[in-house]
Amino acid sequence: MMIVRELYAYREMIFSLVRRDLVGKYKKSILGFLWTFVEPLLQLCVYTFVFTVIMPMKNIDNFYLHLFVALIPWNFFATCLGGACTSVVDQQDMVKKIYFPREVLPIAYVTSQFVNMVLSFIVVFIVIVIAGVGISLKAVLWMPLVMLLQYIICQGIVLLTSSITVYFRDMQQILSVLSLALMYAAPVIYSVDMVPEEIRSAYMMNPMAVVIVAYRDILYYRKVPDVNDLLLGFVAGSLMLLIGYNTFAHLKKRFVEEL
């Protein structure tokens, strides 16, 4: 509980780092902050072209939308898996010279990526409306819960990977390969219905799959996500957070000597 109080005291540091990350990233570019919206739009254009002109998916209506509502949250997972492991190593000058709760660094990283995703969802909503699919308000009300689950999972992953990377730099390469592979462990480019019935329950043990399925239910099928799946997702997610936190707490003591 000490750490919660301490992190609360350092809340301004988390905010500033998030702000620095979001604002500082586009500081010298012409489009600036607009890039946050342009990026997912460009991605959408590419996928629409590929899946309507080159290899049309006949059995799923509006496949580009089917993909897009899953791709935006997956991008968040992918950066947390692939890039976030260096969140402590990259700030080593700060870590070596100043005391602050080390957890601030992974938390700020995940939070700024999270904000990025939330902003991208604005684009998703606009596209859904323009495509004429429509939005179910009752389903959308579940969004914050799904986002919370996703945030917890990512935080768990990043606490774990960023602390291990300090001692073991190969982690970075391993994870960037892994994040490519893991994309297929969640129903991002395919539909969850394609997963064989027999292994479906095992498949849904993966909390990332739960999250992607829930987003798609809400935004594409316009229905309330499966509550049982979500509950299981929360259990698995909390477990990941616990493991991540404990590993970090144990490893952080010798960060400075290893960096």
Binding site: A9, M13, L17, V23, G24, D93, K97
Partner: peptide, 21 residues
């Protein structure tokens, strides 16, 4: 610590001071 070169001195005061808690 934490200075961002593209941000103004004033913004950096906020970042830097927040690192001191």
């Amino acid at each position: 610590a934490g200075f961002h070169p593209d941000m103004s001195g004033r913004d950096n005061i906020y970042i830097n001071a927040s690192i001191f808690g």
